[in-house]
């Protein structure tokens, strides 16, 4: 694979339960490569390890085994972080700030100049449809508005690579369509996109490649084109359900 920007090698994570000191393996031997400009969707049931994978790649968590490299640098490296954007699942922001103030804050964390921050905040609030609410405190935002603002802040530094965790969560159908348009625009510009989602039609429409996770393991990776044009599956949902059913039938041990 040419110009790999995300590389996970045997990435594994164990957590210790605080009460019984029992070790729980939440991610096992994740091997994954994502090329520059690719859009990769990670799908799987709740608790499959999708969010953990992203957190390990961003350096929010440290792996028990294995390693991840982002843009050729170890996970969590500040130089790599300067070039990526991240939207957490169900984002919570500082409710005392307005949307514009929050974008300015996010820009400052990247060391962006004041003038550029102000311009970016203007562009991005327009991009995500929050122009009118830009000067309203976030405590008055709906879930969908917070999600849109989360998307905006993840783009403040013009990232080469974005990690979005459930970007469509909390959005109505119009919002979802808007996010798909943003994703298409980013793809056109060559941004590498890695996202988790439960909404398979959106993944199908936007992604070049998908990975299916179940019980902390990446069980299959496939080009979306092959799934839809191969003839074996009706659509991505059909593929997903069959892959999960096979994995369960194959006795993937519950941790």
């Amino acid at each position: 694979m040419a110009d790999v920007v995300i590389q996970a090698t045997n990435l594994s994570k164990e957590l210790t339960s605080s009460l019984l000191r029992r070790k729980v393996r939440i991610l096992s031997g994740l091997n994954l490569q994502v090329a520059r400009g690719e859009t990769f969707g990670l799908i799987g049931p709740n608790g499959a390890g999708k969010t953990t994978s992203i957190k390990l790649m961003l350096g929010l968590m440290r792996p028990t085994e294995g390693a991840a490299e982002i843009l050729g640098m170890p996970a969590g490296d500040k130089k790599a972080l300067a070039q990526l954007g991240y939207l957490p699942e169900n984002p919570y922001f500082y409710s005392h700030l307005t949307g514009r103030e929050f974008l300015d804050f996010a820009g400052q964390l990247f060391g962006i100049e004041k003038k550029e921050r102000s311009e970016r905040a203007q562009e991005l609030t327009k991009l995500v449809g929050l122009t009118e609410a830009a000067d309203t405190q976030m405590r008055k935002y709906s879930k969908g508005m917070l999600q849109r603002l989360g998307i905006a802040q993840s783009l403040i530094n013009r990232p080469q690579l974005i990690f979005w965790d459930e970007p469509m969560s909390g959005l109505d159908p119009i919002g979802r369509k808007d996010v798909r348009q943003i994703l298409f625009h980013l793809k056109e510009k060559g941004t590498t996109i890695f996202f988790n989602s439960h909404l398979l039609p959106d993944v199908n429409e936007v992604c070049d490649r998908v990975g299916v996770m179940n019980r902390g393991q990446l069980i299959v990776q496939e080009d979306v084109k092959n799934i839809s044009q191969g003839g074996s599956y009706k659509d991505l949902e059909d593929f997903f359900l069959e892959v999960i059913a096979k994995a369960e039938a194959g006795g993937q041990a519950r941790s």
Partner: peptide, 28 residues
Amino acid sequence: MTGNSGNIDGKQAGPKVFEPVWAIALNT
């Protein structure tokens, strides 16, 4: 949200050491 999609590609701003400190201080 539709329409002008803004400039979301391209160059990277270099972080300055005390800019984030000040941003976090002001936010707090």
